[in-house]
Design a protein around this nucleic acid. Sequence first.
DNA 1: AGATGTGAATGAGTTCACAGCT
DNA 2: AGCTGTGAACTCATTCACATCT
Lengths: 207, 207
Amino acid sequence: MTGTSEVSPLTLNRLSIYLRSLRQLQDHGVHRISSKQLADQFHLSPTQIRKDLAQFGEFGIRGVGYDVDHLAGRLTELLGLDSCRRLILIGVGNLGRALAHYVGFNSRSFRLVALVDQDPTKIGRRIGELVVQPPARLADLIRETGAEIGILAVPEEAAQANYDALAEAGIRAVLNFAPARLRTDPHVRTKDVDFRINLEELGYYLK
Amino acid sequence: MTGTSEVSPLTLNRLSIYLRSLRQLQDHGVHRISSKQLADQFHLSPTQIRKDLAQFGEFGIRGVGYDVDHLAGRLTELLGLDSCRRLILIGVGNLGRALAHYVGFNSRSFRLVALVDQDPTKIGRRIGELVVQPPARLADLIRETGAEIGILAVPEEAAQANYDALAEAGIRAVLNFAPARLRTDPHVRTKDVDFRINLEELGYYLK
DNA sequence: AGATGTGAATGAGTTCACAGCT
DNA sequence: AGCTGTGAACTCATTCACATCT
Protein backbone atom coordinates (compact mmCIF):
# COMPACT_ATOMS: atom_id res chain seq x y z
CA MET A 1 0.00 0.00 0.00
CA THR A 2 1.89 2.99 -1.30
CA GLY A 3 0.39 5.85 0.65
CA THR A 4 0.90 9.28 -0.82
CA SER A 5 2.12 11.05 2.35
CA GLU A 6 5.73 10.85 3.42
CA VAL A 7 7.09 8.29 5.84
CA SER A 8 7.95 9.72 9.23
CA PRO A 9 11.58 9.71 10.35
CA LEU A 10 10.50 7.93 13.51
CA THR A 11 9.12 5.03 11.52
CA LEU A 12 12.17 4.99 9.29
CA ASN A 13 14.53 4.90 12.24
CA ARG A 14 12.66 1.97 13.67
CA LEU A 15 12.84 0.14 10.36
CA SER A 16 16.62 0.44 10.59
CA ILE A 17 16.45 -1.10 14.02
CA TYR A 18 14.19 -3.91 12.87
CA LEU A 19 16.55 -4.71 10.03
CA ARG A 20 19.55 -4.76 12.32
CA SER A 21 17.71 -7.04 14.71
CA LEU A 22 16.73 -9.39 11.91
CA ARG A 23 20.34 -9.60 10.75
CA GLN A 24 21.36 -10.62 14.23
CA LEU A 25 18.73 -13.33 14.13
CA GLN A 26 20.02 -14.48 10.73
CA ASP A 27 23.49 -14.80 12.23
CA HIS A 28 22.00 -17.05 14.87
CA GLY A 29 20.27 -19.18 12.27
CA VAL A 30 16.72 -18.08 13.10
CA HIS A 31 14.42 -18.28 10.09
CA ARG A 32 11.02 -17.39 11.43
CA ILE A 33 9.86 -14.91 14.04
CA SER A 34 6.65 -13.27 15.26
CA SER A 35 6.34 -9.57 16.01
CA LYS A 36 5.93 -10.51 19.66
CA GLN A 37 9.18 -12.51 19.79
CA LEU A 38 11.06 -9.80 17.91
CA ALA A 39 9.74 -7.19 20.30
CA ASP A 40 10.66 -9.21 23.37
CA GLN A 41 14.19 -9.89 22.20
CA PHE A 42 15.00 -6.34 21.15
CA HIS A 43 12.84 -4.28 23.51
CA LEU A 44 10.39 -3.07 20.92
CA SER A 45 6.61 -2.94 20.61
CA PRO A 46 4.93 -5.73 18.64
CA THR A 47 2.01 -3.56 17.49
CA GLN A 48 4.37 -0.86 16.40
CA ILE A 49 6.42 -3.29 14.38
CA ARG A 50 3.30 -4.40 12.53
CA LYS A 51 2.02 -0.85 12.05
CA ASP A 52 5.38 0.34 10.77
CA LEU A 53 5.60 -2.50 8.27
CA ALA A 54 1.98 -2.00 7.23
CA GLN A 55 2.91 1.31 5.62
CA PHE A 56 4.89 -0.56 3.00
CA GLY A 57 2.90 -3.71 2.36
CA GLU A 58 2.20 -7.08 3.87
CA PHE A 59 5.33 -8.96 4.78
CA GLY A 60 4.15 -11.61 7.17
CA ILE A 61 2.05 -14.74 7.22
CA ARG A 62 -1.04 -14.57 9.40
CA GLY A 63 -1.06 -17.12 12.13
CA VAL A 64 2.61 -17.79 11.57
CA GLY A 65 4.88 -14.74 11.70
CA TYR A 66 7.63 -13.41 9.46
CA ASP A 67 10.24 -15.16 7.40
CA VAL A 68 13.43 -13.58 8.70
CA ASP A 69 15.39 -13.67 5.44
CA HIS A 70 12.49 -12.43 3.38
CA LEU A 71 11.66 -9.55 5.72
CA ALA A 72 15.31 -8.56 6.04
CA GLY A 73 15.55 -8.51 2.27
CA ARG A 74 12.46 -6.37 1.86
CA LEU A 75 13.62 -3.90 4.50
CA THR A 76 17.02 -3.69 2.86
CA GLU A 77 15.39 -2.74 -0.46
CA LEU A 78 12.95 -0.44 1.23
CA LEU A 79 15.65 1.53 2.98
CA GLY A 80 17.71 1.61 -0.20
CA LEU A 81 20.52 -0.30 1.49
CA ASP A 82 20.94 -2.64 -1.46
CA SER A 83 22.65 0.14 -3.37
CA CYS A 84 25.67 2.10 -2.17
CA ARG A 85 25.48 5.78 -1.19
CA ARG A 86 28.60 7.85 -1.58
CA LEU A 87 29.61 10.21 1.21
CA ILE A 88 31.79 13.27 1.28
CA LEU A 89 33.19 14.37 4.62
CA ILE A 90 33.82 18.04 5.31
CA GLY A 91 36.15 18.71 8.23
CA VAL A 92 38.84 16.28 9.35
CA GLY A 93 39.40 17.42 12.92
CA ASN A 94 39.12 14.92 15.77
CA LEU A 95 35.52 14.09 15.09
CA GLY A 96 35.91 14.08 11.31
CA ARG A 97 38.81 11.64 11.50
CA ALA A 98 36.88 9.35 13.84
CA LEU A 99 33.95 9.42 11.44
CA ALA A 100 36.26 8.67 8.53
CA HIS A 101 37.30 5.47 10.28
CA TYR A 102 33.80 4.67 11.43
CA VAL A 103 32.79 1.33 9.97
CA GLY A 104 29.21 2.40 9.38
CA PHE A 105 30.56 4.98 6.97
CA ASN A 106 32.36 2.32 4.99
CA SER A 107 29.98 -0.55 4.74
CA ARG A 108 28.16 -2.23 1.90
CA SER A 109 25.58 0.55 1.83
CA PHE A 110 27.71 3.62 2.38
CA ARG A 111 31.15 4.58 1.22
CA LEU A 112 33.25 7.60 1.97
CA VAL A 113 34.57 8.90 -1.35
CA ALA A 114 36.11 12.28 -0.50
CA LEU A 115 37.54 14.35 2.35
CA VAL A 116 37.67 18.13 2.44
CA ASP A 117 39.26 20.50 4.93
CA GLN A 118 40.08 24.16 4.80
CA ASP A 119 43.23 23.90 6.95
CA PRO A 120 46.35 24.04 4.70
CA THR A 121 48.26 21.82 7.15
CA LYS A 122 45.66 19.10 6.65
CA ILE A 123 45.22 19.31 2.89
CA GLY A 124 47.18 16.54 1.18
CA ARG A 125 47.22 14.30 4.24
CA ARG A 126 46.06 10.78 3.72
CA ILE A 127 43.36 9.32 5.96
CA GLY A 128 42.58 5.72 5.19
CA GLU A 129 42.52 5.52 1.42
CA LEU A 130 41.64 9.15 0.81
CA VAL A 131 43.59 12.37 0.58
CA VAL A 132 42.26 15.58 2.14
CA GLN A 133 41.25 18.10 -0.54
CA PRO A 134 40.84 21.89 -0.40
CA PRO A 135 37.34 23.45 -0.33
CA ALA A 136 37.94 24.94 -3.76
CA ARG A 137 37.66 21.45 -5.19
CA LEU A 138 34.32 20.72 -3.49
CA ALA A 139 32.04 21.04 -6.49
CA ASP A 140 34.39 19.09 -8.74
CA LEU A 141 34.76 16.33 -6.15
CA ILE A 142 31.02 15.93 -5.80
CA ARG A 143 30.64 15.74 -9.56
CA GLU A 144 33.56 13.38 -10.07
CA THR A 145 32.79 11.02 -7.21
CA GLY A 146 29.01 11.18 -7.42
CA ALA A 147 28.77 11.91 -3.69
CA GLU A 148 25.16 12.25 -2.60
CA ILE A 149 25.45 12.78 1.15
CA GLY A 150 27.65 15.35 2.86
CA ILE A 151 28.89 14.82 6.41
CA LEU A 152 29.50 18.15 8.10
CA ALA A 153 32.09 17.87 10.87
CA VAL A 154 33.36 21.44 10.93
CA PRO A 155 33.35 23.96 13.80
CA GLU A 156 30.13 25.82 14.51
CA GLU A 157 31.31 29.06 12.85
CA ALA A 158 32.08 27.30 9.58
CA ALA A 159 28.94 25.20 9.44
CA GLN A 160 26.61 27.48 7.48
CA ALA A 161 29.16 28.39 4.82
CA ASN A 162 30.09 24.78 4.25
CA TYR A 163 26.47 23.73 4.20
CA ASP A 164 25.71 26.36 1.58
CA ALA A 165 28.67 25.23 -0.48
CA LEU A 166 27.47 21.63 -0.38
CA ALA A 167 23.95 22.65 -1.36
CA GLU A 168 25.26 24.85 -4.15
CA ALA A 169 27.39 21.98 -5.45
CA GLY A 170 24.28 19.80 -5.72
CA ILE A 171 24.58 17.50 -2.72
CA ARG A 172 21.29 15.77 -1.94
CA ALA A 173 21.53 15.28 1.81
CA VAL A 174 23.60 16.49 4.76
CA LEU A 175 24.31 14.91 8.12
CA ASN A 176 25.36 17.81 10.31
CA PHE A 177 27.52 17.27 13.39
CA ALA A 178 28.10 20.97 14.04
CA PRO A 179 26.10 22.48 16.90
CA ALA A 180 24.59 25.15 14.65
CA ARG A 181 21.08 26.12 13.60
CA LEU A 182 21.47 25.87 9.85
CA ARG A 183 19.43 27.81 7.35
CA THR A 184 18.59 24.76 5.28
CA ASP A 185 18.03 24.42 1.57
CA PRO A 186 14.64 22.85 0.72
CA HIS A 187 16.31 20.62 -1.87
CA VAL A 188 18.72 19.13 0.64
CA ARG A 189 17.59 16.61 3.27
CA THR A 190 19.27 17.75 6.43
CA LYS A 191 19.68 15.95 9.72
CA ASP A 192 21.42 17.20 12.84
CA VAL A 193 23.40 15.07 15.25
CA ASP A 194 24.21 17.04 18.35
CA PHE A 195 26.00 15.38 21.25
CA ARG A 196 25.80 18.42 23.46
CA ILE A 197 22.02 18.48 23.28
CA ASN A 198 21.93 14.80 24.16
CA LEU A 199 24.27 15.34 27.08
CA GLU A 200 22.29 18.28 28.35
CA GLU A 201 19.13 16.23 28.19
CA LEU A 202 20.70 13.55 30.38
CA GLY A 203 22.12 16.20 32.68
CA TYR A 204 18.69 17.70 33.26
CA TYR A 205 17.30 14.52 34.71
CA LEU A 206 20.18 14.23 37.18
CA LYS A 207 19.28 17.40 39.02
CA MET B 1 4.17 26.49 37.44
CA THR B 2 5.77 23.27 38.60
CA GLY B 3 3.67 20.64 36.87
CA THR B 4 3.86 17.15 38.28
CA SER B 5 4.41 15.24 35.01
CA GLU B 6 7.85 14.91 33.47
CA VAL B 7 9.22 17.23 30.85
CA SER B 8 9.43 15.72 27.40
CA PRO B 9 12.86 15.20 25.82
CA LEU B 10 11.66 17.15 22.79
CA THR B 11 10.99 20.20 24.92
CA LEU B 12 14.26 19.77 26.75
CA ASN B 13 16.24 19.53 23.53
CA ARG B 14 14.65 22.72 22.31
CA LEU B 15 15.50 24.47 25.56
CA SER B 16 19.14 23.63 24.88
CA ILE B 17 18.77 25.22 21.46
CA TYR B 18 17.10 28.31 22.85
CA LEU B 19 19.89 28.72 25.37
CA ARG B 20 22.55 28.35 22.74
CA SER B 21 20.80 30.90 20.56
CA LEU B 22 20.52 33.34 23.44
CA ARG B 23 24.22 33.01 24.16
CA GLN B 24 24.98 33.89 20.58
CA LEU B 25 22.79 36.97 20.96
CA GLN B 26 24.64 37.88 24.16
CA ASP B 27 27.91 37.70 22.26
CA HIS B 28 26.46 40.16 19.79
CA GLY B 29 25.40 42.52 22.57
CA VAL B 30 21.66 41.96 22.17
CA HIS B 31 19.77 42.47 25.43
CA ARG B 32 16.15 42.12 24.51
CA ILE B 33 14.32 39.84 22.08
CA SER B 34 10.80 38.69 21.29
CA SER B 35 9.85 35.09 20.61
CA LYS B 36 9.14 36.14 17.03
CA GLN B 37 12.61 37.60 16.49
CA LEU B 38 14.28 34.64 18.16
CA ALA B 39 12.31 32.26 15.96
CA ASP B 40 13.15 34.16 12.78
CA GLN B 41 16.86 34.28 13.52
CA PHE B 42 17.25 30.65 14.50
CA HIS B 43 14.55 28.95 12.45
CA LEU B 44 12.28 28.10 15.32
CA SER B 45 8.57 28.51 16.08
CA PRO B 46 7.57 31.50 18.22
CA THR B 47 4.53 29.78 19.74
CA GLN B 48 6.57 26.75 20.57
CA ILE B 49 9.20 28.83 22.30
CA ARG B 50 6.51 30.37 24.48
CA LYS B 51 4.80 27.06 25.18
CA ASP B 52 8.08 25.38 26.05
CA LEU B 53 9.02 28.13 28.47
CA ALA B 54 5.51 28.18 29.94
CA GLN B 55 6.15 24.77 31.47
CA PHE B 56 8.68 26.30 33.82
CA GLY B 57 7.27 29.71 34.65
CA GLU B 58 6.88 33.18 33.20
CA PHE B 59 10.13 34.56 31.89
CA GLY B 60 9.06 37.39 29.63
CA ILE B 61 7.46 40.79 29.80
CA ARG B 62 4.14 41.09 27.99
CA GLY B 63 4.17 43.64 25.23
CA VAL B 64 7.96 43.75 25.38
CA GLY B 65 9.69 40.40 25.02
CA TYR B 66 12.46 38.64 26.91
CA ASP B 67 15.55 39.98 28.64
CA VAL B 68 18.29 37.95 26.97
CA ASP B 69 20.63 37.73 29.98
CA HIS B 70 17.85 36.92 32.38
CA LEU B 71 16.31 34.21 30.21
CA ALA B 72 19.72 32.69 29.45
CA GLY B 73 20.41 32.58 33.18
CA ARG B 74 17.10 30.92 33.98
CA LEU B 75 17.56 28.32 31.24
CA THR B 76 21.07 27.60 32.46
CA GLU B 77 19.75 26.87 35.95
CA LEU B 78 16.81 24.96 34.61
CA LEU B 79 18.97 22.62 32.56
CA GLY B 80 21.38 22.24 35.46
CA LEU B 81 24.21 23.71 33.43
CA ASP B 82 25.32 25.95 36.27
CA SER B 83 26.86 22.95 37.97
CA CYS B 84 29.39 20.57 36.45
CA ARG B 85 28.57 16.97 35.55
CA ARG B 86 31.38 14.46 35.56
CA LEU B 87 31.68 12.01 32.70
CA ILE B 88 33.38 8.66 32.39
CA LEU B 89 34.19 7.39 28.91
CA ILE B 90 34.21 3.67 28.18
CA GLY B 91 36.06 2.71 25.02
CA VAL B 92 38.90 4.73 23.55
CA GLY B 93 38.86 3.56 19.94
CA ASN B 94 38.56 6.07 17.13
CA LEU B 95 35.23 7.42 18.24
CA GLY B 96 36.09 7.35 21.92
CA ARG B 97 39.27 9.35 21.37
CA ALA B 98 37.41 11.90 19.26
CA LEU B 99 34.82 12.23 22.00
CA ALA B 100 37.56 12.62 24.60
CA HIS B 101 38.80 15.65 22.71
CA TYR B 102 35.33 16.97 21.99
CA VAL B 103 35.03 20.39 23.54
CA GLY B 104 31.42 19.86 24.60
CA PHE B 105 32.68 17.09 26.85
CA ASN B 106 35.07 19.44 28.56
CA SER B 107 33.15 22.63 29.06
CA ARG B 108 31.95 24.53 32.08
CA SER B 109 29.01 22.16 32.48
CA PHE B 110 30.61 18.81 31.71
CA ARG B 111 34.00 17.36 32.45
CA LEU B 112 35.54 14.09 31.47
CA VAL B 113 37.06 12.56 34.61
CA ALA B 114 37.98 9.02 33.61
CA LEU B 115 38.75 6.77 30.64
CA VAL B 116 38.32 3.02 30.56
CA ASP B 117 39.23 0.45 27.94
CA GLN B 118 39.53 -3.29 27.98
CA ASP B 119 42.40 -3.47 25.45
CA PRO B 120 45.74 -4.07 27.31
CA THR B 121 47.62 -2.13 24.63
CA LYS B 122 45.52 0.94 25.41
CA ILE B 123 45.52 0.75 29.20
CA GLY B 124 48.05 3.19 30.63
CA ARG B 125 48.04 5.44 27.57
CA ARG B 126 47.47 9.10 28.21
CA ILE B 127 44.73 10.94 26.29
CA GLY B 128 44.59 14.61 27.11
CA GLU B 129 45.02 14.77 30.87
CA LEU B 130 43.71 11.31 31.61
CA VAL B 131 45.20 7.84 31.64
CA VAL B 132 43.24 4.87 30.28
CA GLN B 133 42.22 2.49 33.08
CA PRO B 134 41.24 -1.18 33.04
CA PRO B 135 37.58 -2.22 33.41
CA ALA B 136 38.37 -3.82 36.77
CA ARG B 137 38.77 -0.32 38.18
CA LEU B 138 35.38 0.89 36.88
CA ALA B 139 33.45 0.87 40.15
CA ASP B 140 36.33 2.46 42.07
CA LEU B 141 36.76 5.13 39.42
CA ILE B 142 33.11 6.08 39.53
CA ARG B 143 33.21 6.31 43.31
CA GLU B 144 36.50 8.22 43.45
CA THR B 145 35.74 10.68 40.67
CA GLY B 146 32.03 11.07 41.34
CA ALA B 147 31.21 10.40 37.68
CA GLU B 148 27.48 10.60 37.03
CA ILE B 149 27.24 10.05 33.30
CA GLY B 150 28.83 7.22 31.34
CA ILE B 151 29.68 7.60 27.67
CA LEU B 152 29.60 4.22 25.93
CA ALA B 153 31.84 4.14 22.89
CA VAL B 154 32.58 0.43 22.69
CA PRO B 155 31.86 -2.04 19.86
CA GLU B 156 28.36 -3.43 19.57
CA GLU B 157 29.24 -6.81 21.10
CA ALA B 158 30.63 -5.20 24.23
CA ALA B 159 27.85 -2.66 24.75
CA GLN B 160 25.49 -4.61 26.99
CA ALA B 161 28.21 -5.91 29.33
CA ASN B 162 29.69 -2.46 29.76
CA TYR B 163 26.29 -0.89 30.24
CA ASP B 164 25.48 -3.40 32.95
CA ALA B 165 28.81 -2.74 34.64
CA LEU B 166 28.13 1.00 34.64
CA ALA B 167 24.64 0.48 36.04
CA GLU B 168 25.97 -1.92 38.68
CA ALA B 169 28.61 0.63 39.68
CA GLY B 170 25.95 3.23 40.32
CA ILE B 171 26.18 5.47 37.28
CA ARG B 172 23.10 7.67 36.89
CA ALA B 173 22.94 8.16 33.13
CA VAL B 174 24.45 6.69 29.97
CA LEU B 175 24.97 8.18 26.53
CA ASN B 176 25.32 5.18 24.25
CA PHE B 177 27.14 5.43 20.92
CA ALA B 178 27.11 1.69 20.25
CA PRO B 179 24.59 0.49 17.66
CA ALA B 180 22.99 -1.94 20.09
CA ARG B 181 19.53 -2.40 21.58
CA LEU B 182 20.40 -2.25 25.25
CA ARG B 183 18.42 -3.89 28.00
CA THR B 184 18.28 -0.77 30.12
CA ASP B 185 18.22 -0.38 33.87
CA PRO B 186 15.22 1.64 35.11
CA HIS B 187 17.49 3.58 37.46
CA VAL B 188 19.78 4.74 34.66
CA ARG B 189 18.71 7.41 32.17
CA THR B 190 19.81 6.07 28.84
CA LYS B 191 20.07 7.83 25.52
CA ASP B 192 21.23 6.37 22.21
CA VAL B 193 23.18 8.22 19.56
CA ASP B 194 23.34 6.18 16.41
CA PHE B 195 24.99 7.58 13.29
CA ARG B 196 24.08 4.64 11.14
CA ILE B 197 20.39 5.11 11.79
CA ASN B 198 20.70 8.76 10.89
CA LEU B 199 22.57 7.94 7.71
CA GLU B 200 20.06 5.31 6.73
CA GLU B 201 17.27 7.80 7.25
CA LEU B 202 18.90 10.23 4.85
CA GLY B 203 19.64 7.43 2.42
CA TYR B 204 16.01 6.44 2.28
CA TYR B 205 14.90 9.80 0.97
CA LEU B 206 17.47 9.69 -1.82
CA LYS B 207 15.89 6.71 -3.52
C1' DA C 1 0.09 48.88 20.25
C1' DG C 2 2.57 44.91 20.96
C1' DA C 3 4.19 40.76 22.87
C1' DT C 4 3.43 37.20 26.35
C1' DG C 5 1.01 33.26 28.22
C1' DT C 6 -2.64 29.82 27.48
C1' DG C 7 -7.13 27.24 26.57
C1' DA C 8 -8.98 25.19 22.53
C1' DA C 9 -8.28 22.98 18.06
C1' DT C 10 -5.66 20.36 15.24
C1' DG C 11 -2.33 17.01 13.91
C1' DA C 12 1.04 13.23 14.70
C1' DG C 13 2.17 8.99 16.81
C1' DT C 14 1.09 5.02 19.65
C1' DT C 15 -1.73 1.53 21.62
C1' DC C 16 -5.93 -1.17 21.76
C1' DA C 17 -8.90 -4.58 20.24
C1' DC C 18 -10.43 -7.45 16.94
C1' DA C 19 -11.53 -9.03 12.12
C1' DG C 20 -9.37 -11.94 8.82
C1' DC C 21 -6.01 -15.38 7.21
C1' DT C 22 -3.25 -19.71 7.64
C1' DA D 1 -5.29 -21.72 17.81
C1' DG D 2 -2.27 -18.19 16.54
C1' DC D 3 -0.46 -14.16 14.55
C1' DT D 4 -0.93 -10.60 11.10
C1' DG D 5 -2.97 -6.40 9.51
C1' DT D 6 -5.92 -2.45 10.68
C1' DG D 7 -9.85 0.75 12.06
C1' DA D 8 -10.88 3.09 16.27
C1' DA D 9 -9.42 5.08 20.66
C1' DC D 10 -6.19 7.33 22.93
C1' DT D 11 -2.09 9.97 24.13
C1' DC D 12 1.37 13.18 23.04
C1' DA D 13 2.89 17.41 20.48
C1' DT D 14 2.22 21.45 17.78
C1' DT D 15 -0.35 25.33 16.18
C1' DC D 16 -4.07 28.64 16.46
C1' DA D 17 -6.37 32.39 18.31
C1' DC D 18 -7.11 35.41 21.79
C1' DA D 19 -7.41 37.21 26.63
C1' DT D 20 -4.03 39.48 29.43
C1' DC D 21 -0.70 42.44 30.74
C1' DT D 22 2.98 46.41 30.03
